[in-house]
Nucleic acid binder design. Structure first.
Lengths: 105, 105
DNA sequence: AGGACACTTCACCATTTGGTGAAGTATTGC
DNA sequence: GCAATACTTCACCAAATGGTGAAGTGTCCT
């Protein structure tokens, strides 16, 4: 569900995790390091991201390596595309927006 | 804050409201109609969207007309753009993703 | 003025969320 | 085997969230 994806991104720690993972894979410890957060909290955050389909988790030795799953992101891109298509499709809409920006309250 | 925007979109009712508003302005009553929800609940949902900068609310007679504010949406578009730029910038990254998709656990 | 209409504000409630410390599990290295 | 490492699971807590009914506010209509 798209709302699940947005929910996963609605937290500063998790948004930072996604940002970090966009630069490459990282272990739980590496992800936790810049956030002054306990291991259980990090486990929870990553689980939310995994449940939303944004992150892939796999065991490597005694560490757990996380990677980003671009598929989930492209779902958001799709939604954004559909959304903007609607209001760009009519000039009336644009005129309406301009008019409404004009008046004070 | 971007997390506030995502938080506002992390609810099915509010996501539907945004979808509805992308087709044009609507009053609170019109927004509530398809959702079997009480007026106080709708007021709360719209406030969350207004606080996130996604929606503009103005009084027209005894109704309240809501419109979408594209600026907040474009902030999300910006973030998505930055994110995908990172992992598309290196071929190594793509290879890494393919390798990791390959193995089972 | 007074009633109807379209919300909003005000408690209030149940559930979810983000956090913790303590205990448990899997893996590495001596 | 045993200690250390790297998490995870397990209660548990405080705060936020999404919902409600009841009462309040502003606007239109007669």
């Amino acid at each position: 569900m798209l709302t699940t994806t947005f929910g996963a991104l609605a937290d500063p720690t998790r948004l930072a995790i996604v940002g970090r993972l966009s630069r490459g894979a990282a272990t739980m410890g590496e992800l936790a390091e810049p956030h002054r957060i306990t291991p259980p909290a990090m486990t929870k955050h990553v689980r939310v991201l995994v449940d939303a389909g944004l992150v892939h988790r796999r065991r490597v030795g005694r560490t757990v390596v996380c990677t980003l799953r671009p598929e989930a992101i492209s779902e958001v891109q799709q939604w954004l595309g559909d959304l903007t298509t609607y209001w760009n499709s009519t000039v009336d809409r644009l005129e309406e927006l301009l008019r409404e920006d004009g008046d004070g309250h």
